[in-house]
Amino acid sequence: MSDKHTSSTFDGDLKRLTGRLLEMGGLVEQQIASAMDALDTFDLPLVEQVLEGERRLNTMEVEIDEEVSNVIARRQPAARDLRFLMATSRCVTNLERAGDEASKIAKRIRSLAMNRAGRSVDIAEIKNSGEMALQILRRALDAFARMDTESARQIIRDDVSIDNEFRAFMRKLVTCMMEDPRSISAGLDYLFIAKAIERIGDHATNLAESVVYVVHGTDVRHQPLQRIEGMASDS
């Protein structure tokens, strides 16, 4: 939050919450990156590392939400400050869910590591979409830290690319399973991984939508992209 308040301690509260949110976001980024590395290598110790990190994310979600509630109770904020606190809580929930998706990916990789038939499936689209989801999440966290609505709008546009990769992989996977029934079990694991990546992109997009909400006071969840595009740029 760049706006200054008459109360320096209130400013400190908001900056501390932003810092905690970015810390949690960094951990989620690490979880996703590790899960994608494990997908490349079938590294089971790395899989277990991702699964262990989920507990830390759960703890952080509870801690940050408690801090948000305490600030609201003490400061009784209004207007943009209240929107910021509500958006912070919303973003924390989305980060925790993105971390859950990373854990789901890790569990599927553990299953795939014991199924050699899965090694023959071309997963180029999964790798591409995983990298895109990770980049979108990083950009969404940066946009939230700077309250940059133009970057947020671009993230909302870019999420479509992840959806396109998911659909392309789905078509290829169905063909692969029809041609080789032995690949069906592994194919289902890859399907769940691809869907988890798509959801990570959705959670990152939700963070970007929260930026628009804080700055403009308009809730753009479930709104068409055209409406978001039509909103005024930052002054």
Rank of each mutant, 00 (worst) to 15 (best):
G201H: 05
G26T: 00
D65N: 15
A79K: 12
A73S: 13
A196L: 07
D159R: 14
P181R: 04
I32M: 02
I197N: 01
D37V: 08
A102Q: 01
E66Q: 09
E67A: 06
Q30N: 07
P45T: 09
M24A: 04
T149N: 11
A124W: 14
L95N: 06
P181Y: 05
N164A: 13
P224M: 07
A78N: 09
Y213C: 09
V215R: 04
R199K: 07
K127W: 12
K4W: 13
A208K: 15
R83Y: 09
F166M: 14
R199Q: 08
T9G: 04
D163P: 03
F10K: 08
L134M: 03
G19L: 05
V62I: 04
C176R: 08
P45V: 08
V62M: 06
S161M: 06
L46F: 06
S129M: 15
D122F: 00
D43T: 08
N128K: 11
G230K: 13
I72D: 01
D189P: 02
A133D: 08
M231C: 02
D142Q: 15
F144R: 14
R74W: 12
D180M: 04
E101S: 05
T93R: 10
V211D: 06
E54S: 14
H5D: 02
A140R: 12
A152L: 14
L95E: 03
P45A: 07
I136L: 15
T9H: 14
E165P: 03
E101Y: 09
T88K: 02
A113F: 13
R119P: 00
C91E: 03
G201K: 09
I123F: 03
M231N: 09
E54W: 13
I228P: 05
S69A: 07
L207F: 00
N70E: 06
M147Y: 05
G99R: 15
S103P: 00
Q30V: 00
R75L: 01
R55L: 08
L17G: 12
I162K: 07
R75D: 03
E29P: 01
I105G: 01
R56D: 12
G217P: 10
K104G: 03
H203C: 10
I184M: 06
N206S: 08
L85P: 03
R139C: 00
R90K: 12
D3V: 12
A113H: 14
E198S: 06
P181S: 02
V121N: 08
N70Q: 15
Q223P: 01
D11Q: 14
E61T: 11
F192S: 04
F144I: 03
S7N: 11
N58C: 01
G53D: 12
F166V: 09
S111M: 14
Q76S: 04
